[in-house]
């Protein structure tokens, strides 16, 4: 599903060139559930941005489901992001002036879907993540765990192929974090969406069937755990 081949990303800061990712290659298959760990500065976030089509590598090739996504012009990349990828962030990033279902429906609105249909789908997805009774709530009235559920509903509402989660449990207490992790495992199992989770938490990483560790700009460790 995800094919990264010889991905190099370097930043020019003054005279020196900092290489963040160095000829990194990675293949992630359909329906896989991976965690990505690594110390700060190991390039986790850069890798996530490249996979999420928010950033371009300096060199290398990247295909999603066989499609060369780096060749696409910027507005085509927006539509690729919209169709193929769902994002979940550490601090939720819900739009504060939209209620739960409007937040969840946003990706569909950007596809130009009529509001009634988008609302129906967003509500179905909110129900699926366990927020059937919170459709009209504003983000400020929701708890951290509930906000993250809205964010997950928003990420999944467009039926993406890939769910990218950047420290999704970092802002939550352990009990709620585990609930969110269970939700990720469940949607992976039931919807068949590929899940990539960046995390610092070994306890979260240990529950993933495939565990990647970044070091020196490459995949330093690729561990598969039998389910």
């Amino acid at each position: 599903m995800l094919d990264l081949i010889d991905i190099t990303k370097s930043f020019r800061t003054g005279p020196a060139e900092t290489v963040v990712l160095n000829d990194l290659s990675l293949h992630v298959g359909e329906r896989e559930f991976c965690s990505i760990m690594g110390g700060s500065g190991s390039g986790k976030s850069t890798l996530m941005n490249i996979i999420g089509l928010l950033d371009r590598p300096t060199r290398g090739q990247y295909r999603i489901a066989g499609e060369d996504v780096l060749a696409a012009p910027p507005d085509k990349q927006s539509s690729l992001r919209n169709r193929l990828i769902g994002f979940v962030f550490q601090s939720f990033f819900l739009l504060p002036r939209l209620n739960a279902w409007r937040n969840a429906a946003l990706p569909l609105m950007y596809r130009g879907m009529p509001e009634a249909e988008a609302k129906r789908k967003a509500c179905a997805m909110l129900e699926r993540v366990g927020l059937a009774d919170r459709m009209e709530h504003m983000p400020a009235m929701l708890s951290g765990g509930q906000k993250q559920r809205v964010a997950i509903a928003r990420a999944l509402v467009g039926q993406p192929k890939v769910l990218l989660a950047d420290e999704p449990t970092g802002a939550l207490d352990p009990k709620v974090a585990q609930e969110i992790m269970d939700l990720f495992l469940e949607v992976n199992r039931e919807l068949g969406v590929l899940v990539l989770i960046i995390t610092h938490d070994p306890h979260i990483a240990a529950q993933c069937p495939r565990q990647l560790r970044l070091g020196a700009g490459r995949i330093a460790q690729d561990l598969r755990v039998a389910a």
Binding site: G52, D75, N82, F93, Y110
Partner: peptide, 9 residues
Amino acid sequence: VRLAIGATR
């Protein structure tokens, strides 16, 4: 956020 979830320029 809007750009990430598929808003165009």
